[in-house]
Every structure is written in C-alpha cells, then in structure tokens.
Design a binder for these strands. Structure first.
Length: 836
RNA sequence: GCGGAUGUGGUGAAAUGGUAGACACGCAAGAUUUAGGUUCUUGUGACUAAGAGUCGUGGGGGUUCGAGUCCCUUCAUCCGCACCA
C-alpha cells in the first residue's frame, strides 16, 4: 500500500468481517455483574428501503458508545431490529405490485447490508423483525394478557375517519384535516375500537418523570408532562329541569370558585343530551352535523367562530337557590375532555366571554379587579355569597367542601391523556387475536393468529375483511359460526417492547424475565426527538403494565436518553418552484446558481433532508467516494449529537484529507519506531494529558469534542515527530490508535495490525488505555496577568507557585512598583488580577 | 395563547465565573510540481496607517477583582402543545 494515500477500499475489504462481527451470549450477560452490563439501544428503524443520513448519524452515535464501553470492559448489549409492520409496505405493494412481505424483507436485506458495511458493531444473533411471526405471536400473548387484566377493552370512540378509503386513520396520518392518501376531508366518526387503558397509569407516568430528571432531556420530560396534562378541579352536577333526559349534566371545571358568576351551561355536540335532542329537533341536528364536518387543523380552529344553539333546556344553579341557567350546545366544547360539558363564567374566561357577548347572555363579575373583562387572574371574590372576600385558592377549597356537603359535586383530577386507540383497519399489522361469537361475545383466539399471505390489496377498506376463509371461523368456546377480529394493532404496539425481546429473541415466552431483570433498564437510548411523546410514553407505559402482569420487575425502560438532531441540507428551487437536487447545481461564475441545463436556481433554507425536497445525500454514494471511516468521522464531527447537523460536502473532503494525513504520519512514525530512533520523551506526558480529556468527552458522549481533541492530539504528534524518540512515538501511537478506534475502526485496525505485526490481540478486544494522572498533569502553567480584569500579558511558571511569587512576577511583567496596586486577586495556577 | 430551547467570526463550533473563538470548513498569500481528491508554510473576529491600542459572545441593566457563563429586563429565531374548561 502506498505510504501517501490511505487505500480505504482495500482496508475495508480486509477488516470488514472482523469489525462487523459481534455477539454476546445470555450466559455471558448472566455471569456479568449488573453494573458491568451496558445496554446501548438505538430506536429500531422502519425498513423503508435504504439507509438515510439520519440513520447513519443515529447508529454512529450508538456504535461509538458501544465500542468505547466494550473497551472499558463492559458487557455491551447492542442489538438492532426492524419495525417492519405499517402502512408504507401496504401502499408500496398497491402502487408497485408485489406483496408487502416481500417488499419489507427485501428492504431489510438491503439495509442490513448497508449497516454492516458501515461497520456498526451489532449483535446480529439478536436481530428481530416485528412483522415476523416469531415476534408478533409473542406480542399477541401480551395482548391477551392485557385483555385478561382489563387493560385493553373495546369502546366506541371518536376517530379520524377517511370516507373514501373507509378506514380509521391515526392522528399522524391526517394532514391539514385530510387523509394523507385519499385527500378526503377527514370526519370524526364514532366507531367501536380497541383501546388501551393507559389513562389508569396517568399518575404513575407523571410521577415516573421525576426519576428521569437529568437523564432524559428536560424538553422531553416537559412534553410528556404537558401531554399527560394533569389538572385539578371539580365535578359539578347541574340538575336538569326537564324530564326524559338524564337527571343532571356533569361538568368539569378548574375554577369552581367562579360558580356564582355562572351564566349558562354548554355541552359538546357529541354529548348524550345533544344526541338525544338531535333526534327530534332539526335545528340541533343541523348544528351537530355541521360541527362533525368541522376541520380540526390549527388555522381552522384559530379562525373558527364560537357558535352554539340553545337547547330549550334549563338546569338549576347548584348554589344559588331559585336561579336557572340555559343549556347551549357549543362548538368549542370537546367531548374528549373532562365530561364533555362546561359551565360558563363569561366574566373570567375568554371563550365564555366571546360566546356570551354573541348570544347576549348575562355576564357577572365575581372577582374584584380594575382589569377589563374577561379577567382570569387572582383576586378577592365579590357577588359570591359565602365566598366573598376570599382569594381564588381559598375560594376553591371552600366551594368544593360545600359542593361535597350538599352532594352537588366533588373534587376531581382530569388528564389530557386519553386512552390509546390501538386498532387499525389495515392488513400489514399484527392481527388482534380475538374472535367474535354471537353467543359467547368476545373470545380469545388460539395463538398465533398468523396473517394470511394470499390477500387482495387495493380494494377499499381492510383486506382482511374480504378474506372469507380467514375471517369466518368456529367459536373456540361453543363451536358455532364466528368471526375473526380483522383489525390489526397500531405499530407503536410493536415498538413498545422490542428492547425486551432483544434480550432473548428466541424465547418461547414473550420476555425472558431472568435476563430482562438483570440487563434492564437500557443504559442509553438514542433516537429522534419526534418520539418524545408517542414511543417514549408508550414504552414507559408498557413497562408499568408488564410489571403489573408479572412479566418482569423493572419499571424504567431507558435510564438515559439522547435525542439526536436532524441531518439538514440546503434545499434549492428553480424559478418555477420545483425542488432541485444539490448535485445538479453548478455555479454560473457570477455567484448565480444554475442547473446543468442552465436554469436559474434559488437557495432555500437548511432543512431536514427529505426526498420530497430533494435535499438528500445518499450515504452509499459518499461511502463509495470517501470511505466508511470518513463518513463515520464526518457525521459526528463539528456538531454536538443533540443539535441539528448542517451538511457540508466541503467539510467531508476535509475529513478524508485528515485520514490520509493520519496515514502518512503513521508511516513516518512507524519507521522511527522500528528504527528505535533517539530523541525527546515529551510526547509521553502529552499523550496522557490528551487521553484524560478524550476519555472524559467519550464518557459524556460529547463526540464533536472528542474529535476535536483527537485532532489536536494528532497535530501535536505530527509536530514533534522528528524530535521524539521511537519509544515515545510508540507510546503516543498506541494511545492514538485506540482513541480513534470507536470512530474510525478500519484505519485504526489497520494501523494496529501493522504496529503489532499481527502478533497481538485484535484491537477490539484491547482495553481502553489507562491515564497516568501524574503524567497527565504538566509541571508548568501559564499565568494570565490582568489589570482590572483585562488581559495584559502572560508568563510561564512552575505549577503550584505561591501567591507571593505570582504577584511579584505579575508586577514585574507590568513594570509596576510593589504597593501601587489597590488590590491583587490571585487564582493559583491561573490568573493574577491587579486592581488599580 | 401556553410551554420549552437557542442567540459567540464568513460557516460548523470550543470555553469547572478566570487568557473568548480550541478543533475544523472556507478564504487569502507564498512554497513544492503532486498528477489519485495533492502536499507544506503563513495569515484569517472587527476597527485603526500601525501597535503591546480600542471594541467585541442579539440589545439594555445588575452582581463580581473578573461575566459568553450568574440575576433582571428586552428583542429575535426555532421547536412542542393548543377551543383542555
């Protein structure tokens, strides 16, 4: 191999198998002390076809951590798998022909190869694919456990309904109020769906956030806290005057203290009273229909007028004897929150105020303030009977006690969190293993319930509905004709426990508790911030639920969490507004950018790499041109892992040049080592100084800083190469190769094999070099001299020199007579600040 | 509207309250003539003719011998949630 050019292609070929091979057995895990086990988890990818830069960055961070911890002597668990159910496979099959299973498995095969090419140290024997029955059959067992424990249930709930595709859509699949595939305006529809009782864990999920403080990003904790949305208040029951309706309307309020200012009660169009009225009252039914078609996009909500219709009904005021309040149906009252009904105090609530103005309802101020209405702040109660004179907090306590005494209400905590609707009318998902029998009701099916392969895609609705031989079965209880559940599970169900299955992917039971309780929690989970609420909340919930069902004892899924930033690239548009690939752009010379065929191009913003905006860089392409090591090094250089990474192709060339530089210097150094050249030994101390700092940056996963220090260390070696002894250079390179290895394993391995002449252990079984702390501390320091806090010069001196000595040196440097300073502040080994 | 974060050179970024801009990218000048994408040296925050001068971490205050860092205030940008009773 040439001494000047690092032949990455040859080296990648030579060490590919060595670097991609890794496996840790469960015996080894069980024999390892719990605190010497390190579980690195990257959120498992959806097999979309090709790896993108976001994957490369995500898995690179995990790989560096895994390799570093391995060298530190940990038993590192570092698995990978595929989140392989979901709509894209089904859609691809419809659009391109073929079968979702084939499409998915082809993609997995391709992406697995790409991961191996990048030398990610994955424990391949632990690989899972969620669309494989080996995985989803165990998931069905968990589902049935949840069913038995009353954690899953069927209920009618309002869901996003696509009237063209005839299916329920997840919230994420509704874009600007329209179905992402059909483009139809999504309706709210009340249908029977399977749900998970995640709300019964609301308090535990909220409390659990405390244990994660500091280890999970504050932002994520805050987002989960807001999502759970605990609010304390009261339920107040308003007795209905009219007959033939429920005896009362219950409302939830966080401001029971404003009850004396109540002016009306408003119920949701989906409230049972509204529903009943709609059957006989045309005005009401028209309004209810109108509300149902309401768009739920942000802009629509912002512009939307507060509207309502009077029901003709009245309720009794629970506290003010003899007073009655009109009942309205209002478009701003949500059935999903609280009780689907509110009482309105227009003086102290903005929405109520707007509504009351519009329909000329009474507005009574009950809190003293000079501010204009509506006033939502604190203050002394007025016009409020026995609450008069109290502030808001005291009035709340007082009124709740009173309501409880007279039986008209009670204290109540409400959550924004709703039960998780888990059923999907989709083929490519885990079948819900139950059977509907006319006689026996819902009956558990024998498991596994396998997805049928012979399926007709592309028809409207769920293909499983149309698969007669699969759908129609005999009831396992009574033997009568029965119908299989044709809904499948939300794919978030799969991604809520995969990290437990990795620990024993072949186990006959879903979770091998012995291994799980020994190896869990995951020490670090690395993934995108987009899962801050969904996946990361579901995973936390699953741990609590699995604990309660006796599957394991551990409660926390991920001890720490790193949310890596997005990989961004500048995007470009031509003058017609079409996106243009960055590769197709050249400079016209006058600063103007043009496409290859001469069209003018405008620079847009740095934004997340996406196919639709064409601002993508194909990892495969740059691996071919720059080599795996260059790509690995580049993707973690310069930007902290949690920040967005702005792609810069010129900087990638710089990384490539660095590796060539390393190679050249190594060859020079190697000949000095073998010749045992005489010279200085200063590099030994330098080495330990850098080793100490580099180890600390790896430890805190400040990978951009680790890279900066490694480069600084290398520059130091390069500078001193000619003057140092062979022995000293050998010490430096021994450490340099090892600190480089987690990032660029190929070149590190090549250098190592040359240095050890193949006679020593492979680099990946080597342990991390230990810092000699005595050597790491230099014996001279540079002292900064300041006058009134401003730098005026520096001097070198022995470490730990006394204050008097430093003071004298500083005065001399400045040419000041002793005693001329008003005050002198000395910080040992750092600074002398002279105040005049 | 509520919540969160971030503002440092041309760019990505460093800095336990203690020498701001480490490490890179880019750019400029010079050397070598390398033909594999070179390599090497020097310079590169702004201002100033120049300096060992002045200014400089979004703006304005404050605490301190000393503030990018702590406190108050303000502006801007980004992200999340949102008719939540």
């Amino acid at each position: 191999m040439s001494d000047n050019i690092y032949n990455f292609r040859a080296v990648e070929k030579k060490w590919g198998d060595v670097l991609a091979g890794y496996a840790i057995s469960n015996d080894e895990i069980m024999c390892t002390n719990k605190d010497k086990i390190y579980y690195v988890l990257e959120m498992l990818p959806y097999p979309s076809g090709k790896l993108h830069m976001g994957h490369v960055r995500n898995y690179m961070i995990g790989d560096v951590v895994a390799r570093f911890k391995r060298m530190l002597g940990f038993t590192v668990i570092h698995p990978i798998g595929w989140d392989s159910f979901g709509m894209p496979a089904e859609n691809a099959a419809i659009q391109e022909g073929g079968h979702p299973k084939a499409w998915t498995n082809d993609n997995i095969a391709n992406m697995r190869q790409e991961l191996q090419k990048l030398a990610y140290m994955y424990d391949w024997p632990r690989e899972i694919s969620t669309c494989n029955s080996k995985y989803y059959a165990k998931e069905q067992e968990i589902f049935l456990s949840m069913f038995k424990h009353g954690l899953v249930y069927r209920k009618k709930s309002y869901v996003n309904w696509d009237p063209v595709d005839q299916t329920v859509l997840a919230n994420e699949q509704v874009i600007d109020g329209r179905g992402w595939r059909s483009g139809a305006i999504v309706e709210k529809k009340l249908i029977e769906q399977w749900s998970i009782r995640i709300t019964s864990y609301a308090d535990e999920l909220l409390d659990g956030l405390k244990d994660l403080t500091g280890a999970w990003p504050d932002k994520v904790l805050k987002m989960q806290e807001n999502w759970i949305g605990k609010s304390d208040g009261a339920i107040i029951n308003f007795e209905l005057e009219q007959q033939h309706y429920p005896s009362h309307i219950s409302v939830f309020t966080t401001r029971p203290d404003t009850i004396f200012g109540a002016s009306f009660v408003a119920i949701s169009p989906d409230h049972e009273v509204a529903q009943k009225l709609a059957k006989t009252n045309k005005l009401v039914s028209n309004f209810v229909d109108e509300c149902r078609k309401m768009k739920t996009t942000e802009e629509a909500l912002e512009k939307m007028e507060k509207k309502g219709v009077f029901t003709g009904l009245y309720v009794k005021h629970p506290v003010k004897n003899g007073e009655r309040l009109p009942v309205y149906i209002a478009n701003f009252v949500l059935i999903e929150y609280g009780t689907g009904a509110v009482f309105a105090c227009p003086a102290h609530d903005e929405r109520d105020f707007e509504f009351a103005k519009k329909y000329e309802l009474s507005i009574t101020r009950v809190i003293k303030s000079d501010a204009p209405l509506p006033y939502t702040g604190d203050g002394e109660h007025i016009n409020s009977g026995f609450l008069n004179g109290l502030d808001v907090a005291d009035a709340k306590l007082s009124i709740i006690a009173y309501l409880e005494k007279i039986g008209a209400g009670q204290r109540q905590t409400t959550y924004r969190l709703r039960d998780w609707t888990i059923s999907r009318q989709r083929y490519w998902g885990c079948p819900i293993p139950v059977i509907h029998c006319q006689k026996c009701g819902i009956v558990q099916s024998e498991i596994p319930v396998l997805l049928p392969d012979d399926i007709e895609l592309g028809c409207s609705g769920n293909p499983l509905e149309n698969h007669r031989s699969w759908k129609f079965v005999k009831c396992p209880k009574c033997g009568d004709d029965a119908v299989r559940e044709t809904d499948t599970l939300d794919t978030f169900f799969e991604s809520s426990w995969y990290f437990l299955r990795y620990l024993d992917p072949e186990s006959t039971i879903p979770i091998n508790q012995k291994v799980a309780d020994h190896a869990m929690p995951v020490d670090i989970c690395i993934g995108g911030i987009e899962h801050a609420v969904l996946h990361l909340l579901y995973a936390r919930f699953f741990m609590f639920a699995l604990r309660d069902m006796g599957y394991l004892k551990t409660e926390i899924p991920f001890k720490s969490l790193l949310t890596q930033g997005m990989v961004c690239h500048k995007s470009y548009k031509d003058l017609d507004g079409n996106w243009v690939y960055p590769d197709d752009i050249t400079s016209a010379g006058d600063g103007q950018l043009i496409t290859k065929d001469g069209k003018k191009v405008l620079e847009c913003a740095f934004e997340k790499m996406s196919k639709s905006k064409k601002n993508i860089v194909n990892p495969q392409k740059i691996i071919d041109s720059h080599g795996v090591d260059a790509v690995r090094l580049f993707i973690i250089s310069d930007t902290p892992p949690e920040k967005d990474f702005d792609w810069n192709t010129a900087a990638l060339d710089g990384t490539w040049r660095f590796l060539n530089h390393v190679w050249r210097v190594f060859n020079k150094a190697f000949s000095r080592i073998t010749q045992q050249s005489p010279g200085n030994e200063t590099l030994v101390a330098t080495t330990h100084r850098f080793l100490k700092k580099i180890t600390a940056t790896y430890e805190s996963i400040s990978l951009n800083k680790a890279v900066a220090l490694i480069r600084e260390f290398f520059n130091e070696i390069d500078d001193k190469l000619e003057s140092e002894s062979g022995a000293s250079i050998s010490v430096a390179f021994n450490v340099f190769v090892k600190v480089l290895y987690p990032i660029t394993p190929y070149i590190a391995h090549e250098m190592w094999s040359i240095m050890t002449a193949g006679g020593s252990t492979p680099l990946q079984s080597e342990s991390w070099p230990e810092t000699d702390t005595k050597l790491a501390e230099s014996d001279t320091v540079t002292i900064a001299v300041q006058v009134n806090g401003k730098l005026r010069g520096t001097f070198e001196i022995c470490k730990d020199a006394g204050d008097i000595v430093l003071e004298g040196e500083a005065m001399e440097l400045l040419g000041l007579a002793s005693g001329s300073a008003r005050r002198i502040v000395v910080v040992p080994n750092r600074i002398v600040n002279i105040v005049i």
